[in-house]
Design a protein around this nucleic acid. Structure first.
Length: 414
RNA sequence: CGGGAGAUGGCAGAGCGGUUGAAUGCACUGGUCUUGAAAACCAGCGAGGGUCACACCUCCGGGAGUUCGAAUCUCCCUCUCCCGGCCA
């Protein structure tokens, strides 16, 4: 959630920054006006309430002294009606305010470059050189089928398109990757957690998926529950409405979950193979930190994911997302894109974001700073998406005969 | 899914419809005492909004209602616990 006070006081600055995210400026203008009116109306209401409270207390005194209370009663009846009226106005304004405010994305950090879409993202660094082949490398769907690792047809039969069955050594590799990643993350101070895959509305609002992006989520029929689109949702909301003590920060967590996304709006993209699925495995990193440390923790997370790829021998690059490509909750995001020889392209395999206090404000996650309660910063990032990592291994470790070598570090986990 | 009990501050646990945002205990923080610690004693100690700071407003699971006044009364919802059914 946007800091409304910040918007009131620094309107020009905030709206300029939000232009990077293509936020309708009239909406911001409206938000500001509502918030100012709300403040005034609230003051009126509170004054009426104060009077009501004060005079109501007199009843006890009057009763003791045996005084007549009828006049007082009539006065308060009237006041009560005014309170009801004032209250209605305030509630209406509050509703409007939260409705608008909850759909406004986070403000991009200063370091975020201007830009429309992924074309304008900035490559920060290349790690490892892509392997060369003395034959034409295949795409992962060919390799997966010839090795019997993936069964696309039967996945569709069981559910629908964008669902896949993973088999044999493919399934083993997936499990190995999960265990390897978690171990890797634990060695860097991230504690493992297992969480529910189904979350309620409040939880999804806390991290920003709701109310705006309900169409992207699988909803449980007749329940106000949703399948999680990422472990970020339950992990961050572990601390929903909590006040953490300073010395337990930063909290660093890692978790393997399945993720579920409707992929509404991506019709026709990556329909072949396993790049874009409705269900996929992912090992996630989440951190809760003091504001002053979040940049440092952010870099740790980027390094953690990048070093993990490096340890698997996978060439990749770090990309700083431009304003137009930033997600709703993110103030700053670095993507890791892995080299896929079959496609001859770098493709996203990890995305690490710092949301600053945006999610913390929504989810009411605070910490005690001396006597004051302050909002924490929340960060999240894929350790790696398991499916895409498998694709990368298939394509990068393919042999002339179509077989696939397993990276050395994974052998103990197979 | 059926039957019963309950939901109050970090925890435990009081609370007659009237100056109760809430007794008490524990925990915690500061102080006195002590060589130091413990004990004892004194003081402070929920959250959100508001204010330069006060004042003031809201919050006793959530929502609606009765009342001049609700933690206390009524209705609905949610959750928790116990018993039974089902089950990894």
């Amino acid at each position: 959630m946007l800091d409304i006070k910040l918007l009131q006081n620094n309107f020009e600055e905030i709206s300029t920054k939000l232009r990077k995210k293509r936020v309708d400026e009239t909406l911001l203008e409206e938000l500001k006006e509502i918030s100012i009116e709300l403040k005034e109306r609230k003051k009126i209401l509170e004054e009426l309430q104060a009077e009501q409270n004060k005079k109501s207390k007199m009843f006890g005194v009057y009763a003791k002294e045996g005084k007549d209370i009828n006049e007082l009663k009539a006065e308060l009846s009237k006041n009560k009606e005014e309170i009801a009226k004032a209250n209605e106005i305030v509630k209406e304004l509050e509703d409007k305010l939260t409705k608008i405010a909850s759909t406004i994305p986070n403000i991009p950090d200063e370091s975020v470059p201007d830009g429309e879409d992924e074309e304008d993202n900035i490559e920060l660094e290349k790690i490892l050189t892509p392997p060369s082949f003395d034959f034409t490398p295949k795409e992962h769907w060919d390799l997966a089928e010839s090795n019997g690792w993936l069964d696309f047809k039967r996945g569709v039969k069981l559910s629908k398109s964008r669902f896949t069955v993973i088999r044999h050594d493919g399934a083993k590799l997936a499990r190995a990757l999960i265990n390897y990643m978690i171990k890797f993350n634990e060695d860097r101070g991230f504690k493992e957690v297992m969480v529910p895959y189904i979350a309620n509305r409040e939880t999804l609002v806390g991290t920003g998926q709701l109310p705006k992006f309900e169409d992207d989520l699988f909803k449980i029929e007749d329940e106000d529950l949703f399948l999680i689109p990422t472990a970020e949702v339950p992990l961050t909301n572990l601390f929903n409405d909590e006040i953490l003590s300073q010395d337990e920060l930063p909290i660093k967590l890692t978790s393997y979950t399945e993720c579920f996304r409707k992929e509404a709006g991506s019709a026709g993209r990556d329909t072949r193979g396993m790049i874009r699925q409705h269900q996929f495995s992912k090992v996630e990193l989440v951190a809760i930190s003091e504001p002053k440390d979040s940049e440092k923790v952010f870099n740790e997370m980027v390094d953690c994911a990048s070093d993990l790829l490096k340890s698997l021998g996978l060439a990749h690059r770090k990309v700083l997302l431009c304003g137009g490509d930033l997600g709703f909750s993110a103030a700053k995001t670095i993507d890791l894109e892995v080299w896929l020889p079959g496609q001859g392209k770098y493709r996203e395999i990890s995305s690490i974001s710092n949301t600053f206090d945006f999610q913390a404000r929504r989810a009411k996650i605070r910490y005690k700073d001396g006597k004051k309660n302050r909002l924490v910063h929340t960060l999240n990032g894929s350790s790696l998406a398991v499916g895409r990592c498998m694709i990368a291994i298939m394509e990068n470790y393919q042999q002339r005969d179509g077989s696939i070598k397993i990276p050395k570090v994974l052998e103990p986990y197979m």
